Computed example of a mutant assay.
Amino acid sequence: AAEVDYRDPRQLPPLYDFVHINGVARAPEGLLLSFGFVASGATRRFQSLLGLPGRILKGVGLDTPLARPSRMFAMRFLGARYSSSTWLGVLLPENGPARIVARQDGVKIPNHNLNWDEDALVFNDTHSSQLVRQAVDGSGRRQVRVPGKPAFARGLAPLGGQRFIVGSQCPAALHEVDLHAGRSELLCELSDNLHECVYAIHAVPDTFGEPPEQLWSSAAPPLAVAVDAGPRAVAMGN
């Protein structure tokens, strides 16, 4: 039997990625998991139809773009454009069974960056282009829209209080989002290329070296961002 590297989602069979785990974070009780894209039955059937030509070509040994794993991986999200799926936040405690702590139905693209923030959950509602903070018990919710066409909100770093840095796609940019004040402010634009997107944002210590010049070859360096406590620098990936 052929071996599959399950660490690489591009190598998985078209109908394997049923929940699309795209985030793991610490929580007081254990681990917080983001099931970014729980495909419905209709979505899976449509994905199967979209992937059929590629599977046939691969079966007869033809190496064409339709038969490549990356193409078949993309079919999962293309299928969702014509049906719907669900995003789930799942708490996996150290003791006891896993339980759902957040849910959003009818998503067309996965949500990202689920994190625990005091007594609430904070995540990028990529489907609706918003940063969301909602109480774990469902008693309250705040959201602020992230600009972009599309925004594809992804990448999240806390600044203290209810202030966060959030990344976007078009333009690829960093925004300071204040959930308490209900506002979003552009910090810097990294690229206007539609195919580039902020992937992750991480705080680094003061001892972190200066980034290489080629990092800014197609974008202006980020503006200085005040952080209430902890590390003073922010690194981006796109």
Results as ranks from 00 to 15, higher is better:
117 D>Q: 09
155 G>L: 12
147 P>F: 14
89 G>A: 00
82 Y>A: 10
83 S>C: 07
178 D>V: 07
154 R>H: 15
103 R>F: 11
132 V>W: 09
96 G>D: 11
87 W>L: 05
153 A>W: 07
107 V>G: 07
94 E>Q: 11
99 R>K: 13
140 G>I: 06
109 I>A: 14
80 A>V: 13
150 P>K: 11
91 L>S: 02
131 L>I: 11
100 I>Q: 07
136 V>D: 06
117 D>W: 09
80 A>P: 04
102 A>P: 06
134 Q>G: 05
113 N>D: 15
105 D>R: 03
95 N>Q: 07
110 P>S: 06
139 S>A: 00
98 A>F: 02
125 D>L: 08
95 N>M: 03
106 G>F: 11
146 V>E: 06
155 G>H: 14
169 Q>L: 12
178 D>K: 09
128 S>K: 03
112 H>V: 00
108 K>G: 15
86 T>P: 11
127 H>V: 10
78 L>Q: 07
152 F>Q: 01
100 I>C: 06
95 N>C: 05
104 Q>L: 15
167 G>C: 05
94 E>G: 13
135 A>R: 10
81 R>P: 03
127 H>A: 14
178 D>S: 07
154 R>G: 05
177 V>P: 07
110 P>M: 04
130 Q>M: 08
92 L>G: 02
153 A>R: 04
177 V>R: 03
136 V>H: 04
97 P>L: 06
142 R>M: 03
88 L>N: 02
82 Y>T: 14
163 R>K: 12
170 C>Q: 15
149 K>V: 13
172 A>R: 15
120 A>K: 14
110 P>N: 05
93 P>Q: 05
130 Q>T: 08
111 N>V: 01
143 Q>H: 08
141 R>K: 07
153 A>C: 12
127 H>P: 09
139 S>T: 05
87 W>G: 02
178 D>E: 08
117 D>S: 10
141 R>Y: 01
115 N>M: 07
126 T>S: 10
79 G>C: 11
177 V>D: 08
167 G>F: 09
92 L>Q: 10
128 S>D: 13
105 D>T: 07
119 D>N: 11
87 W>P: 02
106 G>C: 13
131 L>F: 12
160 G>E: 10
162 Q>I: 00
115 N>E: 10
155 G>Y: 14
87 W>E: 03
136 V>R: 00
92 L>C: 04
